[in-house]
Design a protein around this nucleic acid. Sequence first.
DNA 1: CCGCAACTGACAAATGCTGTCAGTTGATGT
DNA 2: ACATCAACTGACAGCATTTGTCAGTTGCGG
Lengths: 237, 237
Amino acid sequence: MRRSDRLSEIIEIVQDGRLHLARDIAARLEVSVRTIYRDFDTLVASGIPIEGERGVGYLLREPVFLPPMNLSLAELEALHLGMAIVAEAADTELQAASISLTRKMNKVATANGTVPKNWGFGVYPFVQARIGFEHMPKIRSAIRAKEKLKIDYLSLDDISSTRIVRPLQSAYWGKIWTVTCWCEARDDFRSFRIDRISRCRPSGIFFKDEPGRRLEDYLEKVNSQMTGRPDASTQVK
Amino acid sequence: MRRSDRLSEIIEIVQDGRLHLARDIAARLEVSVRTIYRDFDTLVASGIPIEGERGVGYLLREPVFLPPMNLSLAELEALHLGMAIVAEAADTELQAASISLTRKMNKVATANGTVPKNWGFGVYPFVQARIGFEHMPKIRSAIRAKEKLKIDYLSLDDISSTRIVRPLQSAYWGKIWTVTCWCEARDDFRSFRIDRISRCRPSGIFFKDEPGRRLEDYLEKVNSQMTGRPDASTQVK
DNA sequence: CCGCAACTGACAAATGCTGTCAGTTGATGT
DNA sequence: ACATCAACTGACAGCATTTGTCAGTTGCGG
């Protein structure tokens, strides 16, 4: 096995986010432990955020490592346009992420002449209100963690309520953001407009996927109704 | 200089899209020509689309090569959301690009458990009409190439006209796409709604950036007017 | 058919990588 | 305070890879 191959193997191994011991990796790759230590040196030297702790093991800090990749011009354009839109249409967390990603890409791509400095894309503010945007990072991480949320919601007819929901998906409709949930009180799917959520906090209670209450079930249900706007039937006014 | 560093140097050198001779690269990196040939072998073997032609030189086929990179979870989310929106809001060329880019990312990112298979993003059609979308690839490549376009335009009061324009920027307003141009006939900036362009063809005539007629000049002019919608004053109804 | 520059093969020399060994360091638990 | 664990470090001999030199071949364009 070539050294360079071994280095990328190590990245793949460490990428699962769990702790790894140098000796295990050494056994798996059939080299000595010393070599693994040296390999980690090399990887860290080339900027890969691996952290080793004495007595504990190794861990990859950032969750994803992108291997070398070739992009076509169209793909690069799509990427830049997408990041420009996200920077306009999403919350500050994603906004910051899209800007830093664009910067990373530019760093490698615009140094030379083939790639235009100016992409010829303009994106102008088209999210009408940014009310409720501060909830979005919380909502996204709750979706990922499958954690129930406690939300205070003001319906479109100005009736407020507090609910415990299982967040499943946050959706973008061009002007507004919604979050689709399984609502524990109503025992059904409900979609909430994020700009009508006045308060939103993690409950500390985690849920498991249950048939009939999953995102897949919601999407299937909606699909079978063949309405133009998928969540019209469950929309919380 | 380490071998691996030299390999990425070579990529950077070749990335400019111009022809390079092995002997020049060898001189620049202070190694022998033979070593450079071997390095190209290595690069090609790891899937980098470099082409060498006898008697000519070396060339990178795809315009952009993305070196290894670390993305945070937020950046990955922004990327997926952006690609989902582009797939909904742009023409088929960009749509295809966004899909293939998403696939490339998924291939490396969802293999292990850290990254969710389902991102919890839904994006629903929010471009009202896809009329005129077929012109967009042409428009984008004309912007890049600085090639004048001949367009047939139907104004909002149903007056049609044919114009020669210098395309500068295509902009997205959440519902509609526009292209901002320097209009040769009017001798001023004009923005056209893409869904009102009935015909659009490259003229074969290329233009150079001239002070007063560039995108920068347009943006500056618009900025100084402090209107909410930058191109209100030059909008072609 | 000549010049160019990409290519290829062979081999010795230089360089870098690896394993072994013998330690140190810092965190954690008893 | 002590032991344990596992990351880390330095040194050195032996081995593997990489490199340069040299002497060719191949394919393209003039």
